[in-house]
């Protein structure tokens, strides 16, 4: 069990570091590559929580599909040479950082003032995260939301094609 604690700190520090790198890199391609690192560290954190199916989905959907799409769009847009990508200085950065510090402080106070009382993962954590039990729930109790999501994805595909088309006339 102490191995979980070790990996939590490794992956947690890597996740915060790569998330900070995503929002500070000037070049969008560098940000996208750090983003892949962020998704992979989160998959590691899911493994420490005994959720292998979620971890696999994280790697397949986020680090695979979504980031390929993002990198593809970055390449497609051809934003010019990296020197021109310099972000203009704006006072928003200071205000946003102060706001972020305030938000973190608020969340810290909120969560540390009232302990949840859960000191260790549930004993059934491993069987809950197993693909068999999650799949059974998904196709019995949650069948309707599952089908609704497929409709949502269809609408998103059609919407994305219409939005990215050059002209609407056939």
């Amino acid at each position: 069990m102490s191995l979980d604690v070790f990996f939590f700190f490794i992956f947690g520090a890597a996740a915060v570091g790569s998330a900070l790198a995503v929002i500070t890199r000037r070049n969008p391609v560098a940000s996208a590559l750090w983003m892949i690192g962020y998704f992979l560290t989160l998959a590691g954190l899911y493994l420490t929580l005994r959720a292998p199916l979620v971890a696999a989905m994280q790697v397949l959907i986020y680090a695979g599909a979504v980031m390929v799409l993002v990198v593809f769009v970055i390449m497609l847009l051809n934003l010019g040479n990296p020197e021109q990508l310099r972000e203009r200085f704006n006072p928003q950065v200071g205000a946003a950082s102060a706001f972020g510090a305030l938000l973190i402080l608020q969340l810290l106070v909120l969560f540390l003032s009232r302990p949840t009382g859960y000191k260790s993962p549930s004993p059934q954590a491993a069987e809950i995260g197993a693909p068999e039990s999650l799949g059974k729930l998904l196709f019995t109790d949650y069948l309707f939301p599952f089908e609704a999501v497929s409709l949502l994805l269809l609408a998103a595909i059609v919407g994305a094609v219409i939005l990215a088309k050059r002209k609407l006339e056939p």
């Binding site: 070790f6 939590f8 998330a19 954190l45 972020g100 969340l107 969560f111 000191k119």
Partner: peptide, 19 residues
Amino acid sequence: MQQLPLEAYVLLSATLFTV
């Protein structure tokens, strides 16, 4: 080393959300 409380994960999640 003992096990991590739930707060550890929730605080990490809050930090990432703030980023």
